[in-house]
Computed example of a mutant assay.
Amino acid sequence: MIDDFLDRDAFGRLSTSIQFVDYEPIHSSMKWNKPYGPPGLPIIQTAGVLRGQKESTPDRLGLIGDFVDRLRNSGSPISDGPGANVVGSRILTGKLIAMGAGAGLFWHADTDQVSGAYIFYVHPRWDSSWGGELMVMDGAAELGVGELAKSTSGGAARPDYEAVGAVIGPDFRTSLAEERRMQIGAGRFYTARPNRLVLINGQVEHRVNPVLPAAGDQFRCSIVGFGIK
């Protein structure tokens, strides 16, 4: 975790720009993005920026592209630290995701193609009473509990809940996964403090607590990206 990742002026420009970009519902085109809960929740997203083997900066997302470039820059404070495996991946992505009251993210771990993820809080203000905390479970996700990542890669493979492989989610609270979570029962949380950067390993289970009604019409806005192996 790094607080005040950007200087005041750079963060001000970025946090102002998020109101002028184009968003679409995260549950769009009749598709259900399952980790983000039931369709209909107030969650919107922009198109994605790509850096690495592939390069793409959609219209109006220049400042998001600049942010991803900053992460990959050799002078970045995370380029040779714990986040090096994320920003040094073959491909690094980035998009804006905004969550309104009631929205959150189910417990899950990322696929075995993801080296890790980052979350950068870009809203200009957030109160601790508004919820939306990032929760990270202690320990790596236990192999063989949940659906295999390879079964979702577009091939013909089917889920095998007993085989060894990377865990993904959500698993709709299946008994094996819930039993494991209750046995661990500990971890850490990160409030959605503006200008805070959090990096997580792709093999840990994590979730986002729902944004509380106290947030009113304020959205929890973050740049979210993945390092793709």
Rank of each mutant, 00 (worst) to 15 (best):
R90V: 15
L63D: 15
K54M: 06
V86M: 11
G165E: 08
G75A: 11
L105N: 05
E178S: 13
A163E: 08
V224F: 05
M137I: 03
S89G: 15
P159C: 02
C221F: 10
R196I: 01
T46E: 04
W107L: 06
L197Q: 01
G216W: 00
L199D: 00
A192F: 00
A10F: 01
R220V: 04
G75L: 13
R220P: 07
P77C: 08
G227M: 07
L92T: 12
S151E: 07
R60F: 09
A103I: 06
V122S: 09
P210H: 01
L50R: 12
G165T: 06
L63P: 04
D80G: 08
T46L: 01
E147W: 02
T93Q: 09
G185L: 08
V68N: 08
D69R: 06
P25G: 08
V136D: 03
T111Q: 14
T111G: 15
W130P: 07
G37C: 03
S28F: 07
D66E: 15
H108W: 05
L92A: 07
G88S: 11
S89M: 09
G155A: 10
S74M: 12
S129H: 13
G132E: 10
G75P: 03
A177I: 02
L199M: 13
T93F: 06
D59G: 03
D22I: 08
